[in-house]
Amino acid sequence: MQRNSLGQGIGRLIAIAVAAAMLLMTASAQALEKIRLGKSVPHPFTFTPAEIGTETGIWKKHGLEIEVFGYGGDAKMQQGLASNAIDMSLGSGPGMGFMAKGIPAKAVAAFADAPLSMGLIIGSKSPVKKLADLKGAKIGVSTNASLTYWLTRELSRRQGWGPDGIQTVPLGRLPGNIAAMKRGQVDGFVMSASVGYRLEKTGDAHVLLSFGDFIKDFHTHVVFATNKMIAERPDQIRAFLKAWIEVIEFMRKNKDETLRISSKITKLPPDLASREYDAIMPMMTTDLKFDAPAVKTLLKSFVELGILPTEPDPKVLYTEEFIPASR
């Protein structure tokens, strides 16, 4: 009898322990705040901190769960912000121009400066062989008013051809750009230079130039948050930015592990992934603040490139109130 009672007691303790563990797991899961995070395009290395933060547990450490949504360019992603289909997003500096057009969101951090990651990729069958040949050429971009659109028109303007000296053709995601290039519908397209490296291996294209060689004072990528998120969940924005900084610091210190995770997204072979990492990490900042000369470049360009009729008030475009204090 005593032995049976002892067994029953142990059984009850085990049941209680299991129930307690399950309650702790449930409480832990409930404690995580979900953020629906959009990407203007799904695969660039500069946007892989979203997945790296999940796999390393950094988001969870800061009480967050990140659900990622990929879009076919800045314009389509901005529609996601406008409809509250997403809470925050990773997009381009030029995409801030949408805020002046009434998109209910703001940029809350700048995380990539000069466009070291972006290349102009020219098809092997195109007559374009050098920079001067680009006048009048057709170049694929993701969407109008996107980063790729801005870079192409700004390059044309800086060459003295005016913003329309190079024709931009909105083609959405990468497969559409590659297909149009192979059919000869465009001479090439603007995308992460790593895409060009991959196409060089197959003989389909080459990287004609890196935009980082032409454009210095710039914010290539920023973090956006909807006005609803800003008003109702400011603490989660702060937690996101604090965690983001930690992810970037992890990436700087752990190249091999960063490439193991990011390659699942970028689909790059090891040699090209390593080459991209070395080229791009210098543009990834942990300061997150908006640089005055970079903002000036963007404001001026919105008018010069025909995106906006006049320079907008910077307060409409971005805020620094959620950026963590310097450590």
Rank of each mutant, 00 (worst) to 15 (best):
Ser83Met: 14
Ser83Phe: 14
Ala85Gln: 14
Asp87Trp: 12
Asp87Lys: 07
Asp87Thr: 11
Asp87Val: 13
Leu90Pro: 02
Ser92Val: 02
Ser92His: 04
Pro94Glu: 09
Gly95Gln: 05
Met96Leu: 10
Phe98Glu: 01
Lys101Ala: 12
Lys101Gln: 15
Gly102Arg: 11
Ile103Ser: 06
Pro104Glu: 04
Pro104His: 04
Ala105Met: 05
Val108Arg: 00
Ala109Glu: 07
Ala109Met: 05
Ala110Val: 01
Ala112Met: 11
Leu116Gln: 04
Leu116Ala: 06
Leu116Tyr: 08
Met118Gly: 05
Ile121Lys: 01
Ile122His: 04
Gly123Asp: 10
Ser124Pro: 02
Ser124Leu: 00
Lys125Gly: 03
Pro127Asp: 06
Pro127Trp: 05
Lys129Leu: 13
Lys129Asn: 12
Lys130Gly: 02
Lys130Glu: 15
Leu131His: 11
Asp133Glu: 12
Leu134Val: 08
Leu134Thr: 06
Gly136Val: 07
Gly136Gln: 08
Gly136Leu: 07
Gly136Glu: 09
Gly140Ile: 13
Val141Gly: 03
Val141Pro: 01
Val141Ile: 15
Thr143Ile: 11
Asn144Arg: 12
Thr148Tyr: 04
Leu151Phe: 09
Leu151Ser: 00
Thr152Glu: 05
Arg153Asn: 09
Glu154Phe: 02
Leu155Ile: 08
Ser156Ile: 09
Ser156Gln: 05
Ser156Trp: 04
Gln159Val: 01
Gln159Trp: 07
Gln159Ile: 07
Trp161Cys: 09
Gly162Met: 06
Pro163Phe: 03
Pro163Cys: 10
Pro163Thr: 13
Asp164Tyr: 15
Asp164Trp: 13
